[in-house]
Amino acid sequence: MNTKITFLTLILASAVFSSCKNEGAKTEETTTAVSITMKGSDTVLPLAQKEAEDFMKANAGSTITVTGGGTGVGISALQDGTTDIAMASRDLKATEKLKLQEAGKDIQSATIAYDALAVVVNPANKVQKLTREQIEGIFTGSIANWKEVGGADEKIIVYSRESSSGTYEFFKEHVMDKKNYASTILSLPATGAIVQSVGQTKGAIAYVGLAYLDVSIKALEVSYDQGKVFVAPSVAAAKDGSYPVSRPLFYFYNKSSEAKVKSFVDYALSDAGQAVVAAIGYVPVK
């Protein structure tokens, strides 16, 4: 019987304790400390997490909750009012804009960073560069062997993000001329897993954000003009526009909660915030 009693007392105690604490948090909000929830794109997660960590260090008493789930989840949470900031790796879709309008939300957006997508292969692969058309052929399935693009006689293994991620759609729109991926591609739920798999798999190819580049994978040079100029992905090349495959990352928020989130969004856009962007491996907006 004792176990049960201890157990119940514990729960009761924590419930009482937590309700008290809740009161405390509420009164605090009116002062300088803020409590912000952020939700959305998995691409933005590492950046938002680090920014939140540093912001909380600088502003004691503030709390920022960072939740993943994806751009779609973030935006519908913004619509329901269950999050203050939606992190997005793509712009709003027409249906989402409509729904947000219906819900009476006036949505503000801030471009906090750019993400350049690098096409990566296993380091053992001798292919160094590809044209956009070749990449399109590989991802749509019409090129299936590395020897067709100047590599060894080896099957091409295509890794991709999940079909619903912003990264997947961006790559499709800007690199694959909006054609659909072959259904034989392997899709992994997170970019980290893709990096690991490409590092392990000889014939692999994938696209990952610049932030994810490390020694276990090799980034290819890409040409957007039928093979005249090849550009290697780098923060500098993405910044001056010579590397074409880059996209903006957004924080969306409701106008009515601007006062609350402003300090954090301002921080993200400040020099300190942009330094975090660079440190994580994304491209700063300034």
Partner: peptide, 29 residues
């Protein structure tokens, strides 16, 4: 590996229903 192809051998990637739900539900509007 989650490739949505009809499986022919056991040595190919496959995609299952639960994995599809878990991976895609978050991103779907």
């Amino acid at each position: 590996g989650n490739a949505s192809v009809i499986p022919h051998t056991i040595l190919e990637p496959v995609r299952t229903i639960p994995a599809t739900i878990a991976a895609e539900l978050g991103e779907a509007p």
